[in-house]
């Protein structure tokens, strides 16, 4: 994912973060692991993203006890975040469908 435009990557990451947190409240470290399993990303950049989403009211935070070590900062999605995520998903699906289409036509055309 290194060649894709930085802004593009940021937008997609934002969507991934919202979807993952919508699935299950999680703390920063957990989220970073879940994302970096599948997408190559500097985990440190997720924290600014989480802060921004929290500031914009899409996420809220609370402290959750942990069995080992100090309490952890959990992120959960807000109603506003839920709406925003749905809008992003719709946009993403339309976008990726179109991109897939272009790729299929382009690559297919080249092979003929």
């Amino acid at each position: 994912m290194n060649h894709l435009n930085v802004q593009f990557k940021k937008g997609v990451l934002e969507l991934c973060v919202l979807v993952l947190i919508d699935g299950k409240d999680q703390y920063g470290y957990e989220l970073a692991q879940n994302i970096s399993e599948k997408i190559q990303v500097a985990e440190g950049t997720l924290y600014p993203l989480l802060r921004r989403l929290t500031k914009e009211g899409y996420l809220s935070t609370y402290l959750g006890e942990s069995t080992e070590g100090p309490p952890r900062k959990y992120y959960s999605i807000t109603e506003k975040g839920e709406l925003y995520m749905k809008a992003l998903i719709a946009e993403w699906q339309q976008f990726s469908k179109a991109v897939d289409q272009f790729i299929k036509e382009g690559v297919g055309h080249g092979e003929e």
């Binding site: 970096s36 500097a42 985990e43 440190g44 950049t45 600014p48 993203l49 802060r51 921004r52």
Partner: peptide, 15 residues
């Protein structure tokens, strides 16, 4: 895993 402080700070400052 976190990446270098420069990358992180760029992100923080931009946001």
């Amino acid at each position: 895993e976190l990446g270098d402080p420069e990358t992180i700070s760029e992100e923080v400052l931009a946001d």
